[in-house]
C-alpha cells in the first residue's frame, strides 16, 4: 500500500469511529420519529435529552447522582478499608489466613446480591443496609488483590529492608503497603464499579431515590423517557468513575515502572 492510500485508510477508519456513534444515535432518533416502535417502547433521543436537561435544571438529576454516589462511596470505603486490612492480615498473619482463607474462597465466587433480603431483614431498607450491602459485595476482590500484592513482594527488597534493621511496623507501612499498592489498586478498580452496580440494585429494590430508585419509579409510572434518561445518567456516572480511577492510578503510581514505561 502506498503511503497516501494508507493515510486515506486511516482517515476512513477515524471517520468510521466517530461515525458509528453518530449513526447509532441518528438511527435511534429516526426510528423513534418514524414510530416503528411505540413511543412507550422507544422514546426519541430528543425527548430523552430534553428530559435529562429538564431534570438537570430542576436539580432532580444532581440530587439523584449525589445520593447514589454518596452511598456508593461509603460502601466502597468500607470495602476498601476492610479489604486491605483483611488482605494484608491474611498475607502476614498465619491465624488470619487460617480463618479467612476458606471464607474468602467461598465468598468471592458467590452471588452476593442474593443476600439482599437478609440485609433488609437485619438493617432495614434505609441507607445503613444499602451501604453495608455495597461493602459486602465489593470487599472480596479487594481482599484477594491486597492479599496477593502483599504476598508477592520482591524478596530482595524485603530482605534488604529487614537486614537494614527496619521494624515490623515500619516494614508494613513503608515497604509492604507501597509495594502492594499497584495490585491493591487493581482490586479497588474492580470494587468501585461493583459498588455502583450494587448501589443501583439496592435503590431499585429498597427505594430511597437516587438514580436506581428514580428509574424504578419512572418504570412503574410507565414514563419511558424517564427510564431512558436515567440509564443515560447512570452510564455517564459509571464512565466518569472508571476514568477517574484510571487517572488516579496514574497519579498515585507515578513512581512505579508501570507508569514510567508508558
Amino acid at each position: 500500500m502506498s503511503e497516501r492510500s494508507e493515510k486515506a485508510g486511516e482517515y476512513g477508519l477515524m471517520a468510521l469511529r466517530v461515525g458509528s456513534i453518530v449513526v447509532v444515535l441518528g438511527a435511534w432518533q429516526l426510528t423513534a420519529m418514524a414510530h416503528v416502535f411505540s413511543d412507550f417502547l422507544l422514546p426519541s433521543l430528543s425527548s430523552v435529552l430534553l428530559r435529562l436537561y429538564h431534570d438537570l435544571v430542576t436539580g432532580d438529576l444532581i440530587r439523584g447522582i449525589e445520593l447514589t454516589l454518596i452511598r456508593t462511596f461509603i460502601g466502597f470505603s468500607i470495602a476498601a478499608a476492610g479489604g486491605v486490612a483483611i488482605g494484608v492480615a491474611i498475607a502476614r498473619v498465619p491465624l488470619a489466613r487460617w480463618f479467612f482463607d476458606p471464607l474468602v474462597s467461598v465468598g468471592l465466587p458467590m452471588p452476593k446480591v442474593a443476600f439482599l433480603p437478609v440485609f433488609m431483614l437485619w438493617f432495614g431498607v434505609f441507607d445503613v443496609s444499602k451501604v453495608l450491602m455495597i461493602g459486602f459485595s465489593a470487599i472480596f476482590p479487594v481482599i484477594v488483590e491486597a492479599w496477593a500484592g502483599t504476598q508477592n513482594i520482591d524478596k530482595y527488597m524485603s530482605w534488604s529492608a529487614l537486614s537494614l534493621g527496619v521494624g515490623k511496623k515500619r516494614f508494613l507501612w513503608e515497604i509492604a503497603l507501597p509495594a502492594a499498592l499497584p495490585q491493591v489498586f487493581t482490586g479497588l478498580q474492580v470494587a468501585l464499579p461493583i459498588s455502583l452496580i450494587v448501589a443501583i440494585i439496592c435503590e431499585m429494590q429498597m427505594g430511597g431515590q437516587g438514580l436506581g430508585g428514580s428509574i424504578m419509579t419512572d418504570m412503574r409510572f410507565a414514563d419511558s423517557p424517564g427510564v431512558f434518561s436515567g440509564i443515560v445518567a447512570i452510564a455517564l456516572v459509571g464512565m466518569v468513575l472508571v476514568k477517574a480511577m484510571e487517572l488516579l492510578r496514574r497519579r498515585l503510581l507515578v513512581w512505579h515502572q508501570e507508569t514510567q514505561s508508558e
Binding site: L196, S224, G230, M239
Partner: peptide, 17 residues
Amino acid sequence: SLYPMPKSALIPVMILW
C-alpha cells in the same frame, strides 16, 4: 463507551421491552 455502564441499570428497560 458502554462498558463501564453499571449493568443493573438496564433491567428496567428490559422490563419495559
